[in-house]
Design a binder for these strands. Structure first.
Length: 353
DNA sequence: AATTCGTGGTA
DNA sequence: TTACCAAGAAT
C-alpha cells in the first residue's frame, strides 16, 4: 500500500471510530466547518502529556469551569492553579501552563501563535505539543509524534531499533504519512489508533484498518515492538513528614520551592528524602510522635518510604518552617498525592472537632 | 545527551 | 507485589 493509500484508509476508519473527547471536535462536526476551541486544545494537550485520558477528564472540566479562557487563567493566583492541578502529577506542567497563559495574554495580545515554531517558543510547549496544536487547532500539515505514533510506526514498518534511538527514524516515517488534506484529523486518528487498537500489550490487530499493511503483524512480532532500552532500577529513599495541628485547628504547611520535585506545591514540612536514614528536622518545637504506619509512594525515578510524625501545636506556636493554614481554608485536594496519603494516614491521630 | 519530573491503572 | 505504561518538556 502506498503512503497516500494508508492515510486514506486511516481517515476512513477515524470517521466511524473517533473517540468522543470533551476537548475534541469530531470528524463529522469538523467537516461541517466546526473548529476546536484553541484554549481547550492547548489545555488538554498539556494535561495529556504522559497522562491518560481517564486521568485528565475531570481535571479538564474543573479547569475550564473555573477558568473558561486563557485570559482568565492568566489572571489566576499561582496557588489556586497549583491546587487545582494537585494529583495530576508533573507539576512543572502547571507552572509552565501559567507562564504560557501570561505570555499569551501579555506578549501576544491574548492570541496563541498559529504556527508550530511560534507555539514551541512558549513555556511547556515542546515538539509534540506544538505540532499537535498546529495540526488540530490550525489544521496545519505538521507531523505529531507521541508515544502512540512511535508505537504504531514501529509496528507498521517493523522498526526493530530500540527507543529512544529509533525516534528520528519513526518521526520520518510518520512524516511520510502526514497528508495535506485534513492533517488535524489524521494526527488524532493515528493517536486514537494507538490508544484503542495498536495498544502496548495485546494489540487488536484483527480489527486494525492497517492490518494488511503492517510489517510487524506479518512477521508476528507486533506485540514485541517498539523495542526499548532497558531502564535503570529505582532506588528507595527514606524521609519523615511532620503533620502538625494548632489548637484552633490550623495546619502547619509549607510551599515547596519552585524547582525540583513537587515544585510549587503545598506539602507537609519534611526531612530530605535520601537513601540514608532521615535526620530529624521538626518544623516547630512540640511533642512530635511517630505514627505506626508509613506512606509508600513511587515517583518516576525512586521509591519513597515516608514516615509520618504528628503533633498538637500550642496556640502561640511560631514555626521555624512553613505557615499555618486555617482549618477552613485547608483542602486536602490541594496536596500532591504523596502528601495527601500522609494526611489520610495521620488525620485519625488528631482529636475530632 | 542523559536526567529529572507524578500518578493511577493494569497484567 | 512489582514493573510497566500513558497525547513529553526542560535542563
Amino acid at each position: 500500500m502506498r503512503d497516500a493509500e494508508l492515510s486514506r484508509v486511516l481517515l476512513n476508519w477515524y470517521e466511524t471510530h473517533a473517540r468522543d473527547l470533551p476537548w475534541r471536535v469530531g470528524p463529522a462536526a469538523r467537516a461541517a466547518g466546526m473548529v476546536p476551541d484553541l484554549y481547550a486544545v492547548w489545555l488538554s494537550e498539556v494535561m495529556l502529556q504522559q497522562t491518560t485520558v481517564a486521568a485528565v477528564r475531570d481535571y479538564f472540566h474543573r479547569f475550564t469551569a473555573r477558568w473558561p479562557d486563557v485570559a482568565a487563567l492568566a489572571s489566576a493566583e499561582d496557588g489556586d492553579v497549583m491546587g487545582e492541578w494537585a494529583g495530576l502529577g508533573y507539576y512543572a506542567r502547571a507552572r509552565n501552563l501559567l507562564k504560557c497563559a501570561r505570555a499569551v495574554a501579555g506578549d501576544h495580545g491574548g492570541r496563541f501563535p498559529d504556527t508550530r515554531e511560534g507555539l514551541q517558543a512558549l513555556p511547556g510547549i515542546g515538539p509534540y505539543t506544538a505540532a499537535a496544536i498546529a495540526a488540530i487547532a490550525f489544521d496545519r500539515a505538521e507531523t505529531v509524534v507521541d508515544g502512540n505514533v512511535e508505537r504504531v510506526m514501529a509496528r507498521l514498518f517493523a522498526v526493530e531499533t530500540p527507543l529512544p534511538t529509533a525516534k528520528p527514524e519513526l518521526t520520518a516515517l510518520a512524516a511520510r504519512l502526514t497528508p495535506n488534506e485534513r492533517p488535524g484529523c489524521h494526527a488524532q486518528a493515528v493517536m486514537d489508533l494507538g490508544a484503542t487498537i495498536c495498544t502496548p500489550k495485546s494489540p487488536a490487530c484483527g480489527i486494525c484498518p492497517w492490518m494488511g499493511a503492517c510489517a510487524a503483524r506479518a512477521q508476528g512480532i507486533a506485540a514485541d515492538l517498539p523495542r526499548k532500552l532497558p531502564k535503570k532500577p529505582k532506588p528507595t529513599r527514606l524521609g519523615l513528614a511532620y503533620i502538625g495541628r494548632r489548637a484552633d485547628g490550623a495546619w502547619l504547611l509549607e510551599r515547596r520551592p519552585e524547582r525540583g520535585l513537587l515544585g510549587g506545591m503545598l506539602g507537609w514540612p519534611s526531612t530530605e528524602w535520601a537513601e540514608t536514614e532521615p535526620v530529624s528536622a521538626p518544623p516547630a518545637a512540640a511533642d512530635w510522635r511517630p505514627l505506626g504506619a508509613e506512606v509508600r509512594h513511587t515517583f518516576t525515578h525512586f521509591h519513597l518510604r515516608l514516615g509520618v510524625m504528628v503533633a498538637d501545636l500550642p496556640g502561640g506556636c511560631t514555626p521555624a518552617r512553613g505557615a499555618f493554614v486555617d482549618r477552613h481554608a485547608f483542602r486536602p485536594s490541594d496536596l500532591p498525592t504523596v502528601m495527601r496519603k500522609a494526611f489520610d494516614l495521620a488525620r485519625g491521630a488528631f482529636a475530632a472537632d
